[in-house]
Design a protein around this nucleic acid. Structure first.
Ligand SMILES: [Mn+2]
Ligand SMILES: [Mn+2]
Ligand SMILES: [Zn+2]
Ligand SMILES: [Zn+2]
Lengths: 145, 145
DNA sequence: CCCCTAATTGAACATGGTTTTCATTTAGTA
DNA sequence: TACTAAATGAAAACCATGTTCAATTAGGGG
């Protein structure tokens, strides 16, 4: 969550020839600087600090674009609502704090053995997988005591 | 998806002292006999074959109960909507056909090494995980050609 | 077998998150 | 600076799900 991330996000938008508007910049900055739960409403609220006239509609549109170009990953929370987390390129998943919503990426999932076994048992062609770890971040652990 | 499943579902409801109403029976039969996408609206529609006056409200209430008692698992689809699949007891996950929505259970996920490594790297306490395999069922594979 | 009552139901309405519409504004290019 | 396609925001539409409440019913006790 640093300036470098903000620039990478801007680069990615440009690379896909999306215009860099004040509204999009504001959303990007929120994404790049916020630790914790990132849902559309919260992002909109925070983005208004930099761009007071931004509307929820634009936030949703921006998040869609970022998810499309792979800059952002949509997370599914237990209650069914969506949250978003910046995504590095490559095969990653997220570990999400059930207390505060903070999401951190991790890599190194190796499911090939499981996938092969399930595929041969079921006859399915497995095309992909979704994995999320749920837990409690260090801050939320100490708050608990 | 056999009669035995239907009876197991009825047993589970009884075991938790829920009444066996015509509406609930209809929902159970849909769950036990349907292969493929099972969302609330579809279930309601199908259930009306057996119980024409059933309302969506009751379908939702029944699905909630079944999820609560562990007889049913809520699946998260890419678009964010919920689908449901009968669940055996124990630690299982689902493999979902992206073509037709059919969901089959599998077991044998072993993520302990991954979880330990991620936990020590991040300081999180990992409390659980959420895994779904996405793929294409045999029927949908042949349809494709 | 029939009461009784708490549990269940469904229609109507409320809700909340997300998408669509459309007139207006704007980023980026020439 | 002028142009134009892309982007925007307010309002309304949408859609899945939850709530309310008066009427119905499952199923245990008599
Ligand atoms: Mn993976
Ligand atoms: Mn598992
Ligand atoms: Zn936390
Ligand atoms: Zn299929």
């Amino acid at each position: 969550m640093r300036v470098i991330d903000l620039e990478r996000l801007e680069q990615q938008l440009k690379a896909h020839s999306y215009k860099l508007t004040r509204q999009r910049r504001a959303v990007l900055r929120v994404l790049a600087t916020t630790d914790g739960r990132l849902d559309a409403a919260r992002i909109c609220e925070d983005a208004r600090a930099e761009c007071p006239e931004i509307g929820l509609t634009t936030v949703y549109r921006t998040l869609d674009i970022l998810a499309d170009i792979g800059a952002l990953r949509r997370l599914h929370l237990p209650d069914g609502c969506h949250s978003y987390a910046p995504a590095s390129p490559g095969h990653r998943h997220h570990l999400i704090c059930v207390g505060c919503g903070r999401a951190v990426e991790f890599e190194g999932c190796d499911l090939t053995a499981l996938v092969d076994s399930v595929a041969s048992k079921t006859g399915f062609e497995v095309e992909g997988h979704w994995l999320q770890l749920m837990g409690r971040c260090p801050e939320c652990q100490s708050k608990r005591k």
